[in-house]
Each structure stands twice: as C-alpha cells, then as structure tokens.
Simulated scan of single mutants.
Amino acid sequence: MTQIPRSALILGLAGVIPFAWGALTLLVPALAAWGQATLGPRFIGPYVQLYYGAVILSFMSGVLWGFATKADGGRAATGYALSVIPALWAFFMTGGGPVSAAMNLIFGYAGLLVLDFAFWRWGLAPRWWMQLRVLLTGLVVLCLAVVVL
C-alpha cells in the first residue's frame, strides 16, 4: 500500500477533533462544564458531534463528486449520482434526538466507506485513500458510539 501523505493524514486527524471533543465532554462532566461556560452549549457533547458530523458527510459528497470528474460516460454518471448520497443522508437522517441522529451518522459514515471503496477500486481516488478513510471512519464511529451507548 502507498503511504498516506503527511499533510492529508494530519489534516484528516485534525478533522476528528470535534468528534473526540464531543465524546470527551460526554464522558468528563467537568470538561463539559468548562466547555459550556467557555464555548457555549452548542460546542459540547452530542451537539458538536452531530452538527459537525452532518457537515463532514456533506463535505465528503463534494470529495466524491471531485473523484467522479475523473471518470467518463456511465461511470461518471454513476459517480455523480453516488456522490450526493452522503449529503442527502446527512440532511434527512440527522433529525430527531441525539441517539437516533448519532446512530444514523454512524450508518452514514459506514456507507461512505463503501462509496470510498468503490471510487478507489475504479481508480478515481488516490492509492492511499482507503488507508486514510478506514482510519478516520473508525475514529469517527468510535466517538459517535459514545452518544449511542
């Protein structure tokens, strides 16, 4: 396998920070109190995870769209159609309470990983793409699981 470029790895891991922060503020009440007093209630617990999680799923739709531009004909059309699924999933499936929204985000990120794999197999994503996506998806799912459990 090809090594993940350092900048992509660092920025990808930095993108996990809001998920990890939300999980930590659920697990450590003192941290939640500090976060609420300092940052406000929207930036702690499941609230930061769910809002940011929907934003990132939508962002990943754009990434997949970009990969689809490398394809031609029917594969391009399929790629474009598949690329909008994560954003639509985030839009329709993150309402309701925090537990159901977190569970739906977990399913959304698992589904995104399947799409990542398809685009990678089609040669539209970089060789190192799946190494990065498996790592980041695992971390995000772990953090979101704190809300569900």
Results as ranks from 00 to 15, higher is better:
2 T>F: 12
6 R>S: 13
9 L>R: 07
10 I>E: 06
10 I>D: 03
11 L>Y: 15
12 G>E: 06
12 G>D: 03
13 L>I: 14
13 L>N: 05
14 A>C: 15
16 V>Y: 08
16 V>D: 00
17 I>V: 15
21 W>N: 08
21 W>S: 05
21 W>A: 11
25 T>S: 02
25 T>A: 04
27 L>H: 05
29 P>G: 06
29 P>L: 08
31 L>V: 03
34 W>F: 15
34 W>E: 04
36 Q>V: 14
38 T>W: 08
39 L>V: 10
39 L>D: 04
44 I>F: 04
44 I>G: 01
45 G>N: 10
45 G>C: 08
46 P>H: 14
47 Y>C: 01
48 V>R: 01
50 L>K: 07
52 Y>L: 05
52 Y>R: 02
54 A>E: 03
55 V>A: 12
55 V>C: 12
56 I>S: 06
56 I>V: 15
56 I>Y: 04
57 L>S: 11
57 L>N: 08
57 L>T: 09
58 S>H: 11
59 F>Q: 03
59 F>T: 04
60 M>A: 10
61 S>Q: 09
62 G>Q: 07
63 V>T: 07
64 L>I: 05
66 G>S: 14
66 G>L: 14
66 G>C: 14
67 F>N: 03
67 F>L: 12
69 T>R: 08
70 K>L: 09
71 A>K: 06
71 A>Y: 08
72 D>R: 13
73 G>A: 10
73 G>H: 07
73 G>R: 09
74 G>H: 10
75 R>M: 14
77 A>N: 09
79 G>Y: 01
79 G>F: 01
79 G>V: 01
82 L>W: 02
83 S>G: 06
84 V>I: 15
85 I>E: 05
85 I>N: 05
86 P>C: 06
86 P>I: 03
88 L>R: 00
88 L>F: 13
89 W>G: 11
89 W>N: 10
89 W>S: 12
90 A>P: 00
92 F>H: 10
92 F>D: 02
94 T>G: 08
94 T>M: 13
95 G>E: 10
95 G>P: 00
96 G>S: 11
96 G>C: 07
98 P>E: 15
102 A>Q: 02
104 N>H: 13
104 N>G: 09
104 N>S: 13
105 L>C: 12
106 I>G: 02
106 I>V: 14
106 I>P: 00
107 F>L: 14
108 G>D: 06
108 G>V: 03
109 Y>K: 05
110 A>W: 07
111 G>T: 11
111 G>E: 12
113 L>G: 05
113 L>E: 09
115 L>P: 00
115 L>Q: 05
116 D>G: 07
116 D>P: 01
117 F>D: 08
117 F>N: 10
117 F>V: 09
119 F>V: 02
120 W>L: 09
120 W>H: 15
124 L>C: 07
124 L>E: 08
124 L>D: 08
125 A>P: 00
126 P>T: 06
128 W>P: 00
128 W>A: 10
129 W>G: 02
129 W>Y: 11
131 Q>R: 14
132 L>G: 05
132 L>P: 00
133 R>K: 10
136 L>D: 02
139 L>R: 00
139 L>T: 02
139 L>M: 10
141 V>T: 11
142 L>M: 13
145 A>L: 14
146 V>L: 06
147 V>P: 01
147 V>E: 07
148 V>K: 00
149 L>K: 04
149 L>F: 15
149 L>Q: 13
